[in-house]
Simulated scan of single mutants.
Amino acid sequence: MVDIAIIDYGMGNLRSVHQALRTIAPTASIVVTDDPQEVVQAARVVFPGQGAMPDCIRELETRGLRAAVLHAARTKPFLGICIGLQMLFEHSEEGDISGLSILPGRVVRFASNLCDAQNNKLKVPHMGWNQVQHGNHPLWEGIDQNARFYFVHSYYVCPQDAQFVQATSCYPQPFICAVARDNLFAVQFHPEKSQGAGLMLLKNFVNWVPV
């Protein structure tokens, strides 16, 4: 059995994700795959992504991966990254498109007139290192409060239920950057590009046994 399947739907930062997982789990069987059956049979699944939401949803459908993603999100340790977080929700303002509806809520765009405390205009997309204020989920074990993670995004998630929220960051107002439910954990930032803190989160995912 494959230990970790990284879902390839043509849109993710697959090489960096694979390299990071290989670094923290050198003996694990890790595959990058667009084969739905391989996703279904894997012990753990990583659902990365970058790009525009409509393109991601289209490619997921075209490659016949939707049912495999839904199955994995219900039944095994599952990690969503960036668009892999946003696609879990019901609707996105990006392209006015429906998501996978695994979690209740929506995805919204940062306002175009964002300014920092000194009234300097902030750019969208939000790009760079930001501090993260996190909860007490097992995937945060060994990660300092206010640790810095790397972000690249113009949209963020608004879960319908606050109990799913696992972390927030600020740009310049607070926004939700991690959610969790049962066997599922998903983040807006890129752990594979976030050096020590990101590798620790991935290591925690590989060792995570949901209860």
Score class of each variant (00 low, 15 high):
98 S>M: 13
64 G>M: 10
100 L>S: 00
132 V>C: 06
161 D>N: 14
70 L>D: 04
110 F>P: 00
182 D>M: 11
96 D>H: 11
118 Q>A: 15
64 G>S: 07
131 Q>Y: 13
67 A>K: 11
164 F>S: 07
75 T>N: 11
83 I>A: 09
127 M>Q: 02
160 Q>P: 06
101 S>G: 12
169 S>R: 04
149 F>W: 12
115 C>G: 06
81 I>V: 10
134 H>W: 06
162 A>M: 14
181 R>K: 14
98 S>K: 14
89 F>D: 03
141 E>S: 13
139 L>F: 02
117 A>C: 14
101 S>V: 15
200 M>Q: 15
99 G>I: 03
118 Q>E: 15
101 S>H: 13
187 V>W: 08
94 E>S: 05
72 A>L: 07
83 I>P: 05
193 K>F: 08
78 F>E: 01
123 K>M: 14
92 S>A: 12
157 V>F: 01
98 S>H: 14
101 S>N: 13
181 R>Y: 12
175 F>E: 03
175 F>V: 08
93 E>D: 12
123 K>S: 12
152 V>Y: 00
131 Q>D: 13
70 L>I: 08
70 L>M: 05
196 G>Q: 10
79 L>H: 07
108 V>T: 10
71 H>N: 14
146 N>I: 15
108 V>E: 08
164 F>L: 13
136 N>H: 15
174 P>E: 09
150 Y>C: 06
136 N>G: 12
105 G>I: 10
186 A>L: 08
65 L>T: 04
165 V>C: 08
182 D>N: 14
74 R>D: 12
103 L>N: 00
148 R>F: 15
173 Q>P: 03
141 E>I: 13
108 V>N: 04
136 N>I: 14
145 Q>S: 12
79 L>G: 06
73 A>F: 06
81 I>T: 06
109 R>T: 09
185 F>T: 01
96 D>N: 15
188 Q>F: 04
181 R>T: 09
67 A>Y: 09
132 V>F: 04
184 L>R: 00
190 H>D: 02
157 V>S: 02
102 I>G: 00
190 H>P: 04
90 E>P: 07
85 L>P: 02
176 I>E: 01
71 H>L: 15
193 K>P: 04
71 H>V: 12
147 A>C: 09
113 N>L: 13
128 G>V: 05
106 R>S: 13
